[in-house]
Design a protein around this nucleic acid. Structure first.
Lengths: 167, 167
DNA sequence: CGTTTGGTTCGGTTTGTTCCGAACTAATTA
DNA sequence: TAATTAGTTCGGAACAAACCGAACCAAACG
């Protein structure tokens, strides 16, 4: 029974790991560490645990744990009379992630505006036949979409910051 | 004057290039090729053009051009009595991109459901103190967000497929 | 036929990433 | 003081990605 749950957990660690590896641009083991910490929850995970469970060397775990702390993705708590560190995810990770999405979208929005303005100059300057001109409607529509998506993710953010929970 | 526009174009090629490099997981030169093709528009771009303008070797351009065609990102047209290929972006690139976003979101949604269900099992099985239990509200809220975003991007897709334009 | 044009293919270099092992440190325990 | 625990640091192995040059090929031209 416990064995089954453990298998399920490790399968999820791998799956979530692959996702985080791409989404957060992390090395494979770093992503698995983060997954494992997320799926272990508030009781926390130790250095040792991860060395044995994730089958990685101490140096690898050490490096990636420090990296994840630098990125503010994880924090640790301690217990009196116990030298180990118990790692848990930073509770504002979700808000961090939302902020990143909003920032990325803002940048894409800027890029669309720049490209649109460039295409407009070309359309005016070079007197090409109508057929060869750039079509600009797409940029407007895409910007509208970005604005909508940004609004709705920002709504989610306020919802979350009011509740204050961890993943 | 023409020199200025050209500078502006190349600056945009680099900027859009960096964006596409990340968004589409392309090699640096591949992303610049795609950018250049996008910003050149319907008159098309040739192999030669790119070798000289992007300052890359023939082999690099050749490989990446073929790769971009395999990915269905670009197509070419020809002119009678002219052996060159004129590359332009595939007009359904935008729809392709939207489909990818929808697919990715669907996968993330699945993942949230799986994680939530795992956390529920743990909450039930291990009789921990209430404080240590997983909080699941976040997953519900995030799924709601994904559903909203998916709906609005699908709306954009229908808007686009009805109009039928290229970037 | 020889040459040019437009492009492909292959082998190799450079560069970067990811992980490991071994040696080390600093605090604690026996 | 010696040994253990908990972790860090450094050098390097192994692998992958990205690009280049040179040799090559096939169609068209002179």
């Amino acid at each position: 029974m416990k064995d089954n749950i453990c298998k399920e957990k490790m399968a999820l660690v791998e799956k979530l790991g692959v996702h985080l590896e791409n989404r957060e641009q992390l090395a494979p083991v770093a992503a698995r560490i983060l997954s494992y910490i997320i799926l272990t929850g508030k009781s926390g995970t130790t250095f040792e645990d991860m060395v044995t469970i994730l089958c990685a060397s101490k140096s690898t775990i050490s490096t990636h744990l420090n990296h994840l702390q630098d990125l503010n993705k994880i924090v640790y708590f301690t217990k009196t009379g116990d030298r180990k560190k118990y790692f848990v995810i930073n509770k504002d990770t979700v808000v961090q992630h939302i902020n990143k999405m909003v920032k990325d979208w803002r940048e894409v929005r800027e890029l669309h505006l720049e490209i649109k303005s460039y295409k407009e100059t070309i359309n005016e300057h070079k007197i090409k036949n109508e057929e060869e001109k750039f079509d600009l409607n797409f940029h407007n529509d895409y910007i509208k979409f970005i604005d909508g998506a940004t609004a709705s993710i920002e709504e989610l953010r306020t919802k979350i910051t009011n509740k204050q929970f961890s993943i």
